[in-house]
Amino acid sequence: MSDKQFTPADVAKHKEAGDGMYIIIDDGVYDVTNFVDEHPGGKKILMRVAGKDATKQFWKYHNDGVLKKYSPKLKIGTVKEGAKL
């Protein structure tokens, strides 16, 4: 797990597979580029939230066990303090 920090603007640049697809959940930044095809809910939903804060959508459909399971593999950093929207 990295302690790299991102602004929401940094994450917004990563919304297509060619640029890497990043999402924000709570204060974590996750690279879902290689997870899109594995996502049990299908790739469309991840493509829709790529480059955005997906916190609300994530917690609507997942519990913290899902985050714990995938964080080590997908988390690449955090949102910079004071940079939250």
Score class of each variant (00 low, 15 high):
A9I: 13
I45S: 11
Y30W: 14
Y22E: 07
K43C: 06
K68S: 05
A54M: 09
G42K: 10
G18H: 00
I24C: 10
H14S: 04
G65W: 05
I45Y: 11
R48I: 15
G41V: 06
D26Y: 02
K80P: 03
T78D: 08
H39Y: 11
D31H: 00
G51C: 01
K52A: 13
P72W: 12
K73Q: 15
E38Q: 14
K15Y: 06
G18T: 00
A50L: 03
K69N: 05
T7C: 08
M1W: 08
I25C: 10
G41Q: 11
S71W: 04
K60E: 13
H39V: 09
E16N: 03
N63A: 11
A9V: 15
G65Q: 13
V79C: 06
V32Y: 06
D3W: 10
T78M: 06
A54R: 04
I45L: 14
S2V: 04
D31M: 00
D27L: 02
A17C: 00
K4S: 08
L67G: 05
V66C: 13
G77P: 05
D64H: 15
G51D: 02
G42M: 07
K60C: 01
Y22K: 09
I76T: 04
D10I: 10
H39L: 06
T33G: 07
Y70V: 09
E81V: 14
D19E: 15
M47T: 15
Q5Y: 13
T55H: 06
G28N: 08
V29S: 03
M21I: 01
K43A: 15
A17D: 03
H39I: 10
R48F: 15
K56T: 09
D10E: 14
K13N: 14
V29I: 04
D3F: 08
A50S: 12
H39F: 08
V79A: 03
K68C: 01
D53A: 02
E16R: 03
F35R: 01
D10N: 13
F58T: 03
A54L: 11
K80S: 10
K4P: 01
V79S: 03
L74Y: 06
D3Y: 11
I25E: 10
K73F: 12
S71E: 12
D53T: 02
N63Q: 13
T33F: 04
M1C: 11
T7P: 08
G28E: 06
G51E: 03
V79M: 05
D31T: 00
N34H: 13
D27K: 07
A50G: 05
V79T: 05
E16T: 08
E16L: 01
A12G: 11
D31F: 01
G18P: 02
L46W: 02
Y30R: 12
W59P: 08
K44M: 15
V36H: 09
D3L: 14
S2M: 07
F6K: 00
K13H: 14
G28T: 05
F35D: 04
